[in-house]
Amino acid sequence: MALMKPVRPVGIVGYGAYVPRYRLASNEIGDLWTDGNAITPVKQKSVPGLDEDVATMSIEAARNAMHRSSGVAADKLGTVWVGSESHPYAVKPTSTIVAEALGATPHTLAADWQFACKAGTEALQAAIGFVGSGMSEYALAIGMDAAQGRPGDALEYTAGAGGAAYLVGPAEGAIAEFEGSVSYVTDTPDFWRRQNERFPEHGGRFTGEPAYFHHITSAARELLEQTHLQPADFTYVVFHQPNAKFPLKVGEDLGFRRSQIEPGLLVNEIGNTYAGSSMIGLTAVLDIAAPGDRILLVSFGSGAGSDAFAIRMKKTVDHHGTPTTSDYVKRSVMINYATYSRFKENYKLN
């Protein structure tokens, strides 16, 4: 039996998104490196400011998740888990910085998770188990990245910044309930970064069929079979979004309509936020979903694997003045490649 379901029912008690305000249009990159001849995989991507990193972005998303929870105290958090492939330190946890900023220290399990773009949903799976087994009342799972692409490489067009935080707790009183989840992994070398390298390497065309498509469809089909649900039973579906084309194609392969996919598809506006990608797609959907709506979430992380979750909305979200995903997506300031280069600290000041 591949379906995972906790002993006691577990749900999403709070959630929060974060996207930095700067955007770089794909044609800024294409003009520089290809004389404007590039076929761009997205319209634009989000770029973090000079004072932002995965710790600061996680703190803001986590604060938003706590605000939406209607009063869960930070010292009730059994975990503060941050999934990312761009942690600010090579050695020193991001999660303790986030836990301290939230006021969750000292009695919490702080840890950084790693699995390329699946690091966030991996933390989410574990948070469901943590709360579902009664280890704690609440668990915080974050997926956040400030992705790096080698200048001129195909990934430079899409490597964005942002993500989301989920406060997992008892299903009773929750915004949405987890109906079951599946994980599907194999050793597939489609994308990697060695310890002391700044930029990742990828297997080119190999990143498509045997990696992204195989893992997402396998995880999603297993989840549908085990829960006896059909694509038509879901109001929304959110996939990992490395570009604008893949999620639409994999959705079509699985039998979903565009109208189920598009509300959670943010990649054209903010780029691929790696560990944050499917996680923030889900916050966009939670912002608009109605009680009773079913949502399918399927992540993908290189290396490779997918997590699939069946989620059922229980109530309309009370935002308590917290910014929505769309507030962050719309808060955009276009920058040129020179400013982008400055934000990447490519200019030596002294």
């Binding site: 400011g49 932002e52 600061t56 910085i97 900023a101 910014p323």
Partner: peptide, 26 residues
């Protein structure tokens, strides 16, 4: 908001702390 205030060169620690920005929520 909590942001990076300063860093102690490429090898030193990162110092995080408060800054202020225009309110985001519509």
């Amino acid at each position: 908001v909590t942001r990076v205030l300063r860093e102690d060169g490429e090898r030193g620690m990162l110092v995080y702390g408060y800054k202020f920005r225009p309110a985001v929520a519509s």
